[in-house]
């Protein structure tokens, strides 16, 4: 089986995977980083979003080998030194999650959205979430969370 090396949440990891192993499977099964979820098999739901070299990626749609040598950030690596990231904090304050299953992907996508567009309008946020499904919240509090986190992240 081919070998790979990547940085995950700041730590270098190595492993061997089958050619067909998806990035999400590598993260969940080999590294036991189960915060990244799988909600579909057609690349629709976004529960699996992680960052690869700083860009949001659906980890169910990328082979683990494609991430060889790259820098991966998952939900487990977002909080720093016991401090929640402003996006995580905003989701908690604004009740931006219910069952929590879409949440890791939603938060990772939202962080990328705000990094890309630090002062988004509500419409831009709603549009920017088109790759992420949530069945619980009706999105209103997710949008509110992102707008409020954007303010904090702008400083």
């Amino acid at each position: 089986m081919p070998e790979l090396t990547m940085t995950v949440n700041g730590k270098q990891v190595t492993g061997s995977v089958e050619g067909r192993t998806l990035l999400v499977q590598f993260l969940r099964d080999s590294l036991a980083l189960t915060g990244t979820h799988v909600g579909c098999d057609t690349s629709q739901c976004g529960a699996c979003v992680v960052h690869v070299d700083g860009k949001p990626v659906k980890s169910c749609t990328m082979l683990a080998l494609q991430a060889d040598g790259r820098d991966v950030l998952t939900i487990e690596g977002l909080a720093k030194g016991g401090e929640l990231h402003p996006m995580q904090e905003a989701f908690r304050e604004n009740h931006g999650l219910q069952c929590g299953f879409c949440t890791p992907g939603m938060v990772m996508a939202s962080v990328a959205l705000v990094q890309e567009n630090p002062d988004p309008s509500e419409e831009e946020v709603r549009h920017g979430l088109e790759g992420n499904l949530c069945r619980c919240t009706g999105y209103q509090n997710i949008v509110k969370s992102i707008l409020s986190a954007a303010k904090v992240m702008r400083g």
Binding site: L84, H95, F101
Partner: peptide, 17 residues
């Protein structure tokens, strides 16, 4: 605010999979 949120927001939820 919800007790469960910190767990869910940091990837520490414990779902069936």
């Amino acid at each position: 605010p919800r007790t469960e949120d910190e767990r869910f927001l940091t990837g520490q939820g414990n779902y069936i999979d």
